[in-house]
């Protein structure tokens, strides 16, 4: 549409913003407004990528984080190959070439019907643990992850999970990598062992966060 008829208006054009789009739009207008976060379209939990394990998968590497301030990660149907292990996060500051393996702080509550306990670390190789699993335990849960792409802020996460075997277990907690830098890749991993086929891990961005 010619510039002198922007959004169907001649002269002063209406201001566009989320929830307040006024005028007549051609496809280019819509594409430009989407790119500028000014086009109203609902569904702000935006799927970035889903990965599914094969037998022996020990990590899910997400190298594209989009441009979000808050991310949401779900993991379902996670079952260990042979040993007891725990779902966790690691971050990268070089696009996934390597994964930061020191300095994470976390605290979480591990609930179960026998001996529930608090767990904590001031210098861990992982951010977690979210969800303990075994070869006979299936686990699912989620992480909210904050500030990964903000070079001026620490990267935080909060998480919750549930696992079922002979008993039901749950955990919830928070963690941080107290280094203010851009973390441009995210790894969902476990502290030992690997997963059998069929675990599904999805990364979402929360737009406008």
């Amino acid at each position: 549409m010619a510039d002198d008829l922007k959004y169907g208006y001649k002269g002063a054009e209406p201001t566009q913003s989320f929830g307040n789009n006024t005028g007549v739009f051609d496809p280019n207008d819509i594409n430009n407004l989407i790119a500028d976060n000014k086009w109203t379209t609902f569904g702000q939990l935006e799927l970035i990528e889903t990965q599914t394990s094969t037998n022996g998968t020990s990590a899910f590497n997400f190298l594209n984080l989009g441009s979000y301030n808050v991310h949401f990660v779900t993991f379902t149907n996670c079952k260990a190959t042979s040993a007891e292990t725990n779902m966790a996060l690691r971050f990268s500051n070089n696009g996934g070439t390597s994964w930061i393996a020191t300095g994470y702080q976390f605290a979480y509550w591990f609930g179960r019907n026998v001996n529930p306990l608090e767990q904590k670390s001031t210098n861990s190789a992982f951010l977690g643990y979210a969800g303990q699993i075994t070869s006979s335990t299936v686990c699912g849960g989620y992480f909210y992850v904050y500030n990964l792409l903000d070079s001026s802020k620490y990267s935080f996460a909060s998480y919750q999970s549930e696992a079922t075997s002979n008993t039901t277990q749950y955990s919830f907690g928070s963690g941080v990598l107290p280094t203010a830098e851009t973390h441009n890749a995210l790894q969902v991993t476990m502290n030992t062992d690997s997963l059998v086929a069929g675990a599904v891990v999805s990364l979402y961005g929360i737009r406008y966060s």
């Binding site: 702080q105 509550w109 909210y144 909060s158 919830f172 928070s174 941080v176």
Partner: peptide
């Protein structure tokens, strides 16, 4: 709610 912050001593998570 659930949160993550960091006191002068280290991580503080709240549920």
């Amino acid at each position: 709610w659930q949160s993550g912050g960091r006191s002068s001593l280290g991580l503080v998570g709240i549920k």
